[in-house]
């Protein structure tokens, strides 16, 4: 049996990595989503909007707040994306990746705003970029970077 594995390493190794990627990847993703949902609930009263002006009479001061994150894809989902690229359609395995990255970036921005004592983030923008070119090209880091920024409005005491 051991000999068989050694001789067919090119077959056994990807299968092993697929299983590892699937198990570890889905555990990590579930944990991340749980933390995202918890923190979103905590920060639900601190809104972030794309609007420039919010009619508020109080004298306020503004401060730039930024949140960014880099999230990587697992081996299983990358294989899934490569397969999906052959047949076309919705690349479901990357949807959760970009979703997680964006929500995490917004959360970090909001957390910064909350620590400044802000009550709203206005004119918020989100940018995304990929580090290491493309995720499903071999020998490259398959990850996505999200950055959210906006102006935190703080009530003057």
């Amino acid at each position: 049996m051991g000999e068989f594995i050694l001789q067919n390493l090119n077959l056994v190794l990807p299968l092993f990595l697929l299983a590892l990627g699937y198990v570890a990847g889905s555990i990590a993703e579930r944990r991340h989503y749980r933390s995202i949902e918890m923190r979103e609930q905590e920060l639900v009263s601190l809104p972030a909007v794309t609007l420039k002006e919010i009619q508020e009479d109080d004298a306020v001061t503004g401060r730039l707040v930024v949140g960014s994150v880099v999230v990587s894809i697992d081996y299983f989902k990358r294989a899934l994306a490569i397969l999906r690229n052959i047949f076309g359609g919705r690349v479901a395995s990357y949807e959760s990746l970009v979703d997680r990255a964006r929500r995490e970036a917004i959360l970090r921005m909001k957390e910064e705003a909350a620590s400044l004592g802000a009550y709203i983030v206005v004119n918020m923008r989100i940018e995304m970029s990929a580090i290491g070119q493309s995720a499903n090209r071999k020998k490259q880091v398959g990850s996505v970077e999200a950055i959210a920024y906006g102006t935190a409005l703080i009530k003057q005491a």
């Binding site: 639900v44 809104p47 989902k77 899934l80 479901a92 395995s93 959760s96 929500r103």
Partner: peptide, 26 residues
């Protein structure tokens, strides 16, 4: 304050089922 439903941005297909379909097709 209202919570956004994050689930709309993720497809509901199970990754293993998708893998089985795509792998079988390949």
């Amino acid at each position: 304050p209202k919570e956004a439903d994050g689930a709309v941005n993720i497809s509901k297909t199970h990754p293993l089922a998708e893998m089985a379909w795509l792998g079988g097709g390949l």
